[in-house]
Design a protein around this nucleic acid. Structure first.
Lengths: 142, 142
DNA sequence: CGCATGTAATTAACGCGTTAACTACAACAA
DNA sequence: TTGTTGTAGTTAACGCGTTAATTACATGCG
């Protein structure tokens, strides 16, 4: 079956939804001179402390070429550190640096406010349901 | 409440999901030398026949500067036609051209196969539920 | 060892995303 | 009519998305 209209097209609906949600976070990131992609990379690193580039690119939904550029920018601002993996000169290991953790912490309160607002408007139940469905979709397609 | 991990982050989940889904459509579009954004614009035009630029940008989730570039590309390939609105020299009216409709039609069978596959794997019920939730989220945030 | 194959990351090229600035036209008031 | 304000598109600048090609290193086979 083909979507009758663009509103019921899954790719378009996902795009529009993400667009609507990100509109709330963008000003915050811009105020701290961090791009969305840099932010995603930082967040993944803040969870795992030390991740290889390929794994990082995958988890942050960033392509390898983009990651190379992002790493340069984040390393230049001392938000992360970059090292070669021991035992394999090809692999690169990324680690979040104190300045990076500090940024994450600094933005937490503002993020919480935005999240709470979205959750309040959309509904806690619905949000959980949506996240579950998205997780299922992601796992099923990848 | 803040998402405990990136998998439960709404923006990231939406991005990952879209990424997973688009991975299936990308080869088809690439084979016909159409970018994702060009395709979104064409699809919106194929539904409405004649749309003003601002409305088109909104519906296709494309920013005005991008739309300008996309229009040039699509007009160059005679997929769409561009005209000034009568009575208002600022507005631009876009219309799908025969070659554009032909492309839409040509890709329909392939699109159907991909959609059906996604629906089969994900489940019809879940897909409808997901689309409903996304629609609600979009309408609530925009 | 020497070579082929495979993998991780980078580079290159081109189009889009994003914001800000600019141009063109319209609406409206004095 | 003229100047002001507002709106629709476009241009500009810079970073990312995407694919393909390239470099650097690892692995395995002879």
């Amino acid at each position: 079956m083909l979507p009758e209209n663009t509103r019921r097209s899954l790719p378009m609906a996902l795009l529009h939804a993400r667009e609507a949600v990100m509109a709330r976070f963008r000003p915050m990131l811009a105020a701290h001179d961090v791009t969305e992609q840099q932010w995603r990379v930082l967040r993944v690193l803040s969870e795992a402390a030390s991740v290889e580039a390929t794994e990082l690119a995958d988890r942050a939904s960033v392509l390898p070429p983009s990651l190379t550029r992002i790493i340069k920018a984040l390393e230049g601002r001392k938000f992360i550190t970059r090292n070669k993996a021991e035992g394999d000169g090809r692999r690169v290991v990324l680690t979040i640096a104190p300045a990076g953790s500090a940024l994450i912490d600094a933005l937490s309160p503002e993020r919480r406010v935005i999240y709470d607002d979205i959750e309040r408007r959309f509904g806690h139940e619905r949000l959980e349901q949506l996240l579950d469905l998205l997780e299922t979709l992601i796992d099923g397609e990848s």
